[in-house]
Nucleic acid binder design. Structure first.
Length: 227
DNA sequence: CCCTGATTCGC
DNA sequence: GCGAATCAGG
């Protein structure tokens, strides 16, 4: 099999859509997982959370006279690749990674995060003793009731943008990421789910065994546009 | 063991 | 350019 334009396009879409190399491979057929990964790299679209990558360590020269010789021998390959926070990578069944239902954690709160080395003692039974003045401080700041400035522009007034997502509205993607009119469903959710009733039907389907897997029917990405 | 993506290197 | 072999973490 060769990399035709169609196959490359499909590979690109699926890769960016968050499909795994294996999925892409047996979706395309005739290629191995390695082939897909190799091609993806050659296409220059490798940036994706790898389970094996997070190796970013600044060598602390605690012992400067350690091994300069070895370091000189090291092949100066392209290292120290900063990993820019990628857009939320959707997992397989759900097209959009469930955004945390706590927007305050992401945006609002500065978060004291003071790792105060406080001394505690352990009482009988294993509970932690606290001094009188040791009340834990994580007082959840009262979330502002409503300071949403309403829709400023009529332009996007009826579109549900990423910023409009909350846990009450359907976050099913409409259109394709990157497109100017990409938005989210915005319907009232099926209570307890991240999507509206209709899209729950799309998002949650019985997972077939690997062998019996068929071309993914629910396809928020790639393939013909559904809207 | 299964999975994952990354990298290498002979072709 | 391609992808099997290999590596390495989950």
């Amino acid at each position: 099999m060769s990399w035709t334009d169609e196959r490359i396009e499909k590979l690109t879409k699926m890769w960016e859509g968050g499909s795994t190399a294996s999925q892409i491979a047996d979706e395309l057929g005739g290629v191995s997982r390695n082939a897909v990964i190799g091609k993806a790299h050659r296409l220059g679209l490798k940036a994706r959370p790898s389970p094996v990558k997070p190796n970013e360590k600044t060598e602390a020269p605690a012992t400067p006279a350690a091994k300069p010789a070895k370091a000189a021998t090291e092949t100066p390959r392209a290292e120290a690749t900063p990993r820019p926070a990628p857009a939320p990578a959707p997992s397989r069944p759900a097209p959009v990674a469930a955004a945390p239902a706590a927007p305050a954690a992401a945006a609002g709160t500065p978060a004291p995060a003071a790792p105060t080395p406080r001394i505690v003692s352990v009482g009988p039974g294993g509970f932690l003793r606290q001094g009188p003045g040791d009340q834990q401080a994580p007082i959840p700041p009262a979330p502002p009731r409503r300071l949403v400035p309403a829709k400023p522009s009529a332009e996007i007034a009826d579109k549900t943008s990423l910023l409009d997502l909350n846990d009450r509205i359907c976050r099913w993607p409409m259109g394709h990421p990157g497109e100017p009119d990409f938005h989210f469903c915005g319907e009232k959710v099926n209570p307890g789910f991240p999507y509206c009733v209709e899209h729950c039907g799309r998002a949650y389907q019985a997972q077939l065994p690997r062998g019996a897997r068929r071309p993914p029917p629910p396809l928020p990405f790639g393939g013909p546009r559904v809207r």
